[in-house]
């Protein structure tokens, strides 16, 4: 059953991702991207990561997408633009890179991490059942990864200041 649901979500994710990059209209692309993100959230649920699935929907499919659409409307990109791939060299390079990626995926299809790097079967499910799915994440985020977490906020602050400096017409 789980495998069947996975294939449904995986298929939807891949098809909508393909549509996202092939649509000419930025708005249509953004809407297809939402569907991709929703399917990924479904896959997260199958992996016993319900909290991440909820965050995926709230933050990515919700907030970030609103921001995307907002920028698209703001910059007046709503109409159909020309294709990004112009001329045959671009298409050739894109095809070569795509083939490379496909070959890479094919090569690693049987690859698994070394034995000592793998968590035992069902470890995540047991952990999130014992402590709650939020606790597992918050423990890592605010204990082990506290410094990177805070550092990220400084990075975002610097990026905001930088963007304002470059973009504001009169300071």
């Amino acid at each position: 059953m789980v495998l069947g649901v996975f294939w449904v979500f995986a298929g939807v994710a891949i098809v909508s991702a393909f549509l996202c990059i092939t649509r000419r209209s930025p708005v249509a692309s953004a809407l297809w991207l939402i569907l991709t993100l929703f399917s990924l959230a479904g896959i997260f649920v199958l992996l016993d990561a319900q909290f991440i699935a909820a965050l995926q929907v709230l933050v990515y499919a919700g907030a970030i997408m609103v921001l995307f659409l907002f920028v698209i409307m703001l910059l007046n990109l709503g109409r159909q633009g020309p294709s990004d791939l112009r001329g045959w060299p671009g298409r050739l390079v894109a095809a070569a890179l795509g083939l490379l990626l496909a070959a890479e995926l094919w090569a690693v299809r049987t690859w698994a991490p070394e034995e000592h790097l793998r968590l035992p079967e069902g470890a995540i499910a047991r952990m999130s059942e014992a402590e709650g799915p939020v606790h597992v994440i918050s423990d890592a985020l605010f204990r082990e990864y506290l410094i990177p977490f805070e550092l990220t906020s400084v990075l975002l602050l610097a990026a905001i200041v930088g963007a304002v400096v470059l973009a504001k017409r009169r300071l």
Partner: peptide, 12 residues
């Protein structure tokens, strides 16, 4: 993250 913080500031 340090690299990015430095780079973002220096780009601007």
């Amino acid at each position: 993250l340090g690299l990015e913080l430095m780079s973002v500031a220096v780009y601007v």
